[in-house]
Simulated scan of single mutants.
Amino acid sequence: TPPVHYQETAWGLLLAPHQPPLWAVIDGVNCREVMARLSQTDAQYTCLYASTNATTQATAPWLVRIEADSEIRHWLESLPQDQHWGILLQSNATLKQLRSHLRKFTLLWTPANDQAPVYFRFYDPRVALDMSQALEPWKLAALMAPFEALIIPASPHMVLPPELTLTPAVELDTPASEVQGRLVHIALSEDTRAANGQGRQFSIGDTEYQRFG
């Protein structure tokens, strides 16, 4: 079986009664109103960065629990998907567990510079989709260890994997309004999940770096 399985899904399916809890990682860079929205909600949420600096937090990634009938759910569902506001996760982990895990991946060591890591914006859906295709399966398994699936809002500005069949197809010239509400569900095969192993730091090699390019 292929290591990564792609299929189309929708908000209603993700929030059905038998599904694992749904979370979002919202990108403060692409969604500037995130802090104002979260301050008005009673949802569980936290910043993935340790900084308490307001300027840093304004462009930080934010982890938030999504309830089916919540204002946050309806707000995120209404955002234009070509805004690339963030990603969704299905996970039974706690807020604290997820934050601790995801913080390990906000910096990435690349072959371009072995002296310093770069910010890794895995919560930008374009990066998340590229990552699912570029990373070695065991590294993807390390990143996805505490969640069942990674879900990204589809957009015309993405390199969709050949294994994914969207009907109707999403092309570069497809109007963003036509992909609204269409989500890509990314899950790992059981074999891949079992192969999870991780070093002290998150890094990619030359081959993975080329794939990202």
Results as ranks from 00 to 15, higher is better:
Pro21Ala: 12
Leu22Pro: 02
Trp23Ala: 04
Ala24Trp: 00
Ile26Val: 01
Ile26Gly: 03
Ile26Thr: 02
Val29Gln: 04
Val29His: 00
Cys31Tyr: 15
Arg32Pro: 15
Val34Cys: 07
Val34Gln: 05
Met35Thr: 08
Met35Trp: 03
Ser39Gly: 12
Thr41Lys: 04
Thr41Asp: 11
Asp42Ser: 14
Ala43Leu: 09
Ala43Thr: 08
Ala43Tyr: 09
Tyr45Ser: 07
Thr46Asp: 11
Cys47Pro: 06
Cys47Ser: 15
Cys47Phe: 06
Leu48His: 03
Tyr49Ile: 10
Tyr49Trp: 12
Ala50Glu: 09
Ala50Lys: 12
Ser51Tyr: 10
Asn53Glu: 05
Thr55Val: 14
Thr55Asp: 14
Gln57Cys: 10
Thr59Ser: 15
Ala60Cys: 01
Ala60Lys: 00
Pro61Val: 03
Trp62Gly: 00
Leu63Asn: 09
Leu63Pro: 08
Leu63Val: 09
Leu63Tyr: 02
Arg65Val: 06
Ile66Leu: 14
Ile66Glu: 05
Glu67Gly: 13
Glu67Ala: 14
Glu67Trp: 00
Ala68His: 01
Ala68Arg: 06
Ala68Met: 02
Asp69Thr: 09
Ser70Glu: 01
Ser70Gln: 06
Ile72Lys: 03
Ile72Asp: 00
Ser78Gln: 12
Pro80Tyr: 04
Pro80Ile: 02
Gln81Pro: 01
Gly86Tyr: 04
Gly86Ser: 07
Ile87Lys: 00
Leu88Glu: 05
Leu89Ile: 08
Gln90Ala: 08
Gln90Cys: 09
Ser91Pro: 00
Asn92Met: 10
Asn92Gln: 13
Thr94Asp: 10
Thr94Cys: 08
Lys96Ala: 10
Leu98Gly: 10
Leu98Thr: 08
Leu98Ala: 11
Leu98Pro: 01
Ser100Ile: 14
Ser100Pro: 11
Leu102Tyr: 02
Lys104Val: 15
Leu107Thr: 11
Leu107Gly: 12
Leu108Ile: 09
Pro111Trp: 00
Ala112Phe: 10
Ala112Met: 11
Asn113Ala: 14
Asn113Ile: 14
Asn113Ser: 15
Gln115Thr: 12
Ala116Tyr: 13
Pro117Cys: 08
Val118His: 05
Phe120Thr: 08
Arg121Ser: 09
Tyr123Cys: 08
Pro125Asn: 06
Pro125Cys: 06
Pro125Thr: 00
Ala128Pro: 03
Ala128Phe: 09
Ala128Asn: 10
Asp130Ile: 13
Asp130Gln: 15
Ser132Asp: 15
Gln133Ala: 08
Ala134Glu: 07
Ala134Pro: 06
Pro137Val: 05
Trp138Pro: 07
Lys139Cys: 07
Leu140Phe: 13
Ala141Glu: 03
Leu143Ser: 01
Leu143Phe: 12
Leu143Met: 15
Met144Trp: 06
Met144Thr: 14
Ala145Cys: 12
Glu148Val: 00
Leu150Ile: 04
Ile151Asn: 03
Ile151Thr: 06
Ile151Gln: 06
Ile152Ala: 07
Ile152Gln: 06
Ser155Glu: 02
Pro156Asn: 06
Pro156Ile: 03
Pro156Ser: 11
His157Lys: 12
Met158Asn: 04
Val159Asn: 12
Leu160Arg: 15
Pro161Gly: 10
Pro161Trp: 13
Pro162Ile: 00
Pro162Ser: 00
Glu163Trp: 07
Glu163Asp: 13
Leu164Ala: 15
